[in-house]
Amino acid sequence: MFFFASRFGIFDQQQELIDAYKISMDAYIAKAAELGKTENSRYFSYALLATLIFLYPLNLGFFQIFRKLDLKENIEIGDLFTGYNGTNFFRYISYALFWFVIYGVTINTLILPFVWVCITIFVAPIMFFMNKTIFESISLNFKALKMYFLEIVVCVMVAVIFKYIGFALFFVGALFTFPFWNAMIYSLYKTIFSEKE
């Protein structure tokens, strides 16, 4: 993120936004709209999206590590990169692209991104452990959400708060709180789903 922000002049744009904010909120909003239409802002958005999509299979590596911890098997560094193995890699990045596009469209609303996270929270582990397609996984996730709505919503809220506490601690804390989100998903997944389905 910092590399692309530097490459496309986003830090300079941030300074312009700060200066506009000192004038008034209207000036800030006008400047943000103006800067959002620039070519560099667009390139930064594409680069950030591509990076997030490419890094998505690391989440599956965390699930593999948690599974090995449950089975008391030896953990290897290669387990973290298990989502990059074979042709399933393309399934996972396709899902990540699909997920981020929907999330990006709904991000301006308050409730829809939260709903989207709840509807898709188990899709990655279902695809990974049960070898289901994206839409089969969403269907199974939706059934689980209907049956365990309160538990899932509470766990998502706690995990989101905990995850962003890490970002609030000067980004350094995110390195320690990032796996918590995956651990919460894995814990709920193994409690709710039977892989014999």
Rank of each mutant, 00 (worst) to 15 (best):
F2V: 09
F4I: 09
S6C: 09
I10F: 08
F11L: 15
D12I: 12
Q13I: 13
Q13R: 15
E16T: 08
D19A: 14
Y21T: 14
K22F: 10
S24I: 11
K31R: 08
A33M: 13
A33L: 14
L35D: 07
G36W: 10
E39M: 15
S41H: 09
R42T: 15
A47P: 01
L48I: 04
L49F: 06
L49T: 08
L52I: 14
I53W: 05
I53H: 06
F54I: 09
F62E: 10
I65F: 01
F66L: 09
K68T: 13
K72C: 04
L80Q: 03
F81V: 12
G86W: 13
T87G: 06
S94R: 03
S94L: 08
Y95W: 12
L97W: 07
L97V: 12
L97H: 04
F98A: 06
I111A: 05
P113F: 03
V115K: 04
V115L: 10
C118P: 00
C118W: 00
I119M: 01
F122A: 02
V123T: 03
V123L: 02
I126E: 00
F128M: 03
M130E: 04
K132R: 13
T133S: 11
T133G: 10
I138P: 00
I138T: 00
N141M: 04
F142H: 10
K143Q: 03
L145F: 07
K146R: 14
Y148F: 04
E151R: 12
V154Y: 13
V154M: 15
V156R: 00
L169R: 01
F170A: 13
F171M: 15
V172L: 14
L175R: 07
F178V: 05
P179D: 03
F180D: 06
M184H: 09
S187P: 11
Y189H: 11
Y189C: 04
F193Y: 07
E197D: 12
